[in-house]
Amino acid sequence: DKPVLAIQVLGTVKWFNVRNGYGFINRNDTKEDVFVHQTAIKRNNPRKFLRSVGDGETVEFDVVEGEKGAEATNVTGPGGVPVKGSRYAPNR
């Protein structure tokens, strides 16, 4: 398990590439950019086929120490709701 650095952090999605399945979230508290992989998205938009977060979307997440620095995990919308997802992700 990766060491946990912070829990229930709010941030804004800087960018997310649906095809490659990753992007970055900017933390509201430290203004640090945190890597996010599609496997870290815990509550996906049920209408979306692929797990994703949308550019500019506000999300809540935990921060863990990854191999290359801070990574987001347990990604949801604020308060644990499903994320909205990327407009580029296909609908079901």
Rank of each mutant, 00 (worst) to 15 (best):
V4I: 14
I7V: 13
L10M: 12
L10S: 11
G11V: 02
G11D: 05
T12N: 09
N20T: 11
G23A: 10
G23D: 08
F24V: 00
I25V: 13
N26S: 11
N28I: 10
D29Y: 11
D29H: 15
K31R: 10
D33V: 10
D33N: 09
V34A: 15
F35Y: 09
V36I: 11
H37N: 08
Q38H: 13
I41T: 12
R43Q: 14
N44H: 09
N44F: 09
N44R: 08
N44G: 09
N44Y: 10
N44L: 06
N45C: 08
P46I: 06
P46R: 09
P46H: 07
R47C: 12
R47M: 14
R47Q: 14
R47I: 11
K48E: 08
K48V: 04
K48T: 05
F49I: 14
F49L: 15
F49P: 10
F49M: 15
L50Q: 09
L50T: 09
L50M: 13
R51K: 13
R51Y: 08
S52H: 04
S52L: 03
V53L: 15
V53S: 01
V53M: 07
G54Q: 11
G54E: 11
G54Y: 06
G54K: 12
D55F: 08
D55M: 13
D55V: 13
G56R: 06
G56Q: 06
G56N: 09
G56Y: 04
G56P: 02
T58M: 12
V59S: 00
E60D: 01
E60L: 15
E60Q: 15
F61G: 04
F61I: 04
F61H: 02
F61C: 02
F61R: 03
D62M: 05
V63A: 00
V64T: 06
E65G: 11
E65Y: 13
G66T: 12
G66H: 04
G66Y: 01
G66N: 08
G66A: 09
G66L: 00
E67A: 15
E67S: 14
E67F: 13
E67Y: 14
E67L: 15
E67G: 11
E67Q: 15
E67N: 13
K68Q: 12
K68G: 09
K68R: 13
G69F: 02
G69H: 07
G69Y: 04
G69E: 01
A70T: 14
A70I: 13
E71M: 15
E71N: 06
E71W: 07
A72E: 00
A72K: 01
A72R: 00
A72V: 02
A72I: 02
A72Y: 01
T73Y: 13
T73S: 14
T73H: 15
N74Y: 02
V75I: 07
V75P: 02
V75F: 03
T76Q: 08
T76K: 05
G77E: 04
G77T: 05
G77W: 05
G77S: 04
G77F: 09
P78A: 05
P78W: 04
G79I: 02
G79Y: 09
G79F: 08
G79N: 14
G79A: 10
G79C: 11
G79R: 12
G80E: 04
G80H: 04
V81E: 12
V81S: 12
V81N: 12
V81K: 15
P82S: 10
P82K: 04
P82A: 12
P82G: 04
P82D: 08
P82I: 02
V83W: 02
V83L: 06
V83A: 03
V83D: 02
G85M: 01
G85I: 02
G85N: 02
S86A: 05
S86L: 03
R87G: 08
R87W: 09
R87Q: 13
R87C: 11
A89I: 08
A89C: 13
A89L: 08
A89E: 07
P90A: 11
P90S: 11
P90R: 15
P90C: 09
N91Q: 10
N91P: 12
N91S: 13
N91V: 12
N91G: 11
R92I: 12
R92P: 07
R92K: 13
R92L: 11
